[in-house]
Design a protein around this nucleic acid. Structure first.
Length: 486
RNA sequence: UCCCCGAUAGCUCAAUGGUAGAGCGAGCGGCUGUUAACCGCUAGGUUCUAGGUUCGAGUCCUAGUCGGGGAGCCA
């Protein structure tokens, strides 16, 4: 008999002889027709399980009648309609492949479990409805990302995970080292082979003897590297893991997460924002059309209205809003914010939430932030901002944040500073180690072009699409401070 | 990292400083084309960890670990 995925067996014509292989969700027994068991079998190929009907006449029925949740089985049988509509399998054979040992203590039971509990059994939680659905939606989004960029002539660039520059500028980094932590080499200590690099300061650890001959870390962003490929291939993107050693304990932060970073040559901030908007809309559309089964589940059990919200976002243009105007709106709102609203200060969560959830009720692209609160590589705007709330002498940069209701910042990006003198001036101003940026600055010396890009937090995207509240529940094995089991 | 809250059976939760309980799940039986099934019986506990107060601590105190909500850092 042909082995069908459960997704295909559910659509197969009545009368088809099939084999399905998978795991039991539940078993229910009946004494009707001389005794039968209903086995709900799923294999992860779609949200639904298929019901197999096993009659007492089967030679191994006494074993079948003892099957419990997540026992592995192979079922041969004939596709038939159920009395209530839909397909089921009239089993001619049920082969028991793997039993569940000690079902009383098996961590996953046919009942609602809290997400906090399931996180402690992350190796098994993917067998549940919710985490199976999250896994499929996550895959669907990842594939849609690649399709979106491929269709527009972007090249997928594998930027390095290990970085030798500690100047990527986005928070604390994880050290990568093969040195002996207990007794690291120091100058003046027992001599050993030096791999290379500058002589260390007295008393400091001698990283010239480390694996790469210098200090190395896990990357906090592929952007600086991908800019080099952008300045040769025109349209590129990275999609890979990113590491932040920050002590963040929130439902929106991970120590290890995946980020999508496109970079486009001969592009300005406006086209950057347009790309971000087109991408998000296409991703939402992909999930709605390709995973209606899983999205129906999220709609029903995780967040009411999520499907309509995504549809609404696809249909309406995003709101564009310069930072200066956002300040005007916040000041005019009369809301008693906990943190001050003042031109030059960064917006707090409560301010962003007011804009997306109350004032506009839709995604908002905030642009042209004060230069003092943004990164060194962002392009300095030629025009000075004007308005009643702008202090004299203020300057902005071509930065953008895409804010969405519920999550907040989902994308951060900018047009990059392509003018060598202006870039150097910013590096000096911010007292960054200019020597470390030698190859990044070379891009401005040799055939510089305006270019722009952004970073999309993949897990935040999955969160937004599914309505899952905690980011630790949209990545298979979350890494967070104090959390690296599995 | 900061503020607030929490941790008791496999899971979700009760228990005035004085004998540790229920529902679900599991095992056994009954009933039923069942599908959050239903009914009965049974088993199931180092009350997060380490100290302390007390005649006596699940309960009070201290510290830690982990989890939740909010904030910061950001994606």
């Amino acid at each position: 008999m042909p082995w069908l995925r459960v997704a295909d067996a559910l659509k197969a014509p009545v009368g088809t002889q099939v084999t399905v292989k998978g795991w039991l969700r539940t078993r229910r027994d009946s004494k009707a027709d001389g005794g039968l068991s209903f086995l709900s079998v799923h294999d992860g190929t779609c949200f639904d399980a298929i019901q197999a009907v096993a009659k007492a006449a089967l030679p191994n029925y006494s074993e079948i009648a003892r099957l419990t949740t997540h026992c592995a089985v192979e079922v041969d049988g004939t596709i038939s309609p159920t009395p209530k509509g839909g397909n089921e399998i009239q089993a001619t054979a049920v082969r028991i492949v793997g039993l569940v040992d000690d079902p009383d203590h098996y961590p996953i039971q046919p009942k609602q479990h809290s997400f906090e509990y399931l996180r402690e059994v992350a190796h098994l939680r993917v067998r549940t409805n919710t985490f199976g659905a999250v896994a499929r939606v996550r895959h669907c989004l990842a594939m849609a990302v690649h399709r979106f960029f491929d269709a527009r002539g972007f090249y997928y660039v594998h930027t390095p995970i290990i970085t030798g520059s500690d100047c990527e500028g986005a928070g604390h980094m994880f050290r990568v080292s093969t040195l002996d932590l207990v007794n690291p080499p120091r100058p003046g200590a027992a001599p050993g082979p030096s791999v290379g690099g500058a002589p260390p300061a007295p008393g400091a650890v001698d990283f010239s003897r480390d694996f790469f001959g210098k200090e190395t870390h896990l990357t906090v962003s592929g952007q600086l590297n991908v800019e080099t490929y952008c300045c040769a291939l025109s349209r590129v993107y990275t999609f890979g893991p990113t590491f932040r050693a920050e002590n963040s304990n929130t439902s929106r932060h991970l120590s290890e997460f995946w980020m999508i970073e496109p970079e486009v040559a001969f592009a300005d901030l406006a086209s950057n924002a347009a790309l971000a908007e087109a991408m998000l809309k296409e991703l939402f559309d992909a999930v709605l059309t390709q995973r209606p089964d899983d999205m129906a589940f999220f709609e029903q059990r995780i967040e009411r209205g999520i499907i309509e919200r995504l549809r609404g976002i696809i249909e309406k243009p995003f709101r564009r809003l310069p930072y200066t105007e956002a300040i005007d709106i916040l000041l005019a709102s009369g809301k008693p914010f906990e943190f001050p609203v003042k031109w030059g200060l960064d917006l707090q969560s409560e301010h962003e939430r007011y804009l997306t959830e109350q004032h506009f009720k839709q995604p908002v692209v905030l642009t042209n932030y004060p230069k003092q609160i943004k990164a060194f590589y962002m392009r300095q705007d030629d025009d000075a901002p004007t308005g009643p709330n702008v202090p004299p002498g203020s300057r902005t940069v071509a930065a953008m944040d895409v804010l969405v209701p519920g999550i907040g910042e989902i994308i951060g990006g900018s047009q990059r500073e392509e003018r060598p003198d202006r870039l150097d001036a910013r590096i000096e101003e911010m007292k960054l180690p200019i020597k470390e940026y030698w190859w990044y600055r070379d891009l401005r010396r040799y055939g510089t072009v305006p270019h722009a890009g952004f970073g999309l937090g993949f897990e935040r995207l999955v969160q937004f699409v599914t309505g899952m509240q905690n980011i630790r529940d949209v990545i298979p094995f979350p890494r967070a401070p104090g959390q690296c089991e599995f």
